[in-house]
Amino acid sequence: MANWYMLTLVGQDQQGIVAQITQTLFENGYDLGEASMMRLGGNFTVMLMISHPENKNGDDAIAIIKDKMGLCVHSVEVSGGLHQHVEPNVRVTVLGTDRAGIVAEVTGVLAEQGVNIVDLESDVGGTAQAPIYIMHIEGVATNSTDDLVDKLAPLNRDGIEIQVMDIETLVG
């Protein structure tokens, strides 16, 4: 089995962009692994795990559509692979007015508390005059949720609300 590459593509969002990228990769002999596509600030962004029997990194395929679609491309060989999911057991939601440094403050507390972040997503809604900041974090915590709540409590100020919830995955 060839190694996995993490292919990152950023560009102007446009109709059919995902289809073009994945079709081109497929036609050039690439396997796709896990992928995450998001629109960030009006830009198209995607991170794709790809592998090729000849251990190619995706540049050859993307070169075909890169200029036409105005894509920035980055590809790097990664050591991970598929089937390495970890189940998050805690979810932290940060809501409120945008405050400089809030991401660093919250994630700093989480790191201190030994929480391994597996998913972080933040967005800005509202209006330009009154932006609303929304962040969702899911992670694997080893300490109790109560401890985490206590440690995050001081950040609950100046219009920021932080909520902590357990995630319990039911397996049946």
């Binding site: 979810r91 998913d119 997503e121 969702h136 899911e138 949720t145 109560d146 709540v149 206590d150 995050l152 409590a153 609950n156 909520q163 902590v164 919830m165 357990d166 995630i167």
Partner: peptide, 14 residues
């Protein structure tokens, strides 16, 4: 898989 509104079993600081 993400971004859902979970049931608000929210922990309040003691």
């Amino acid at each position: 898989r993400r971004n859902d509104i979970f049931d608000r079993k929210v922990y309040k600081p003691k």
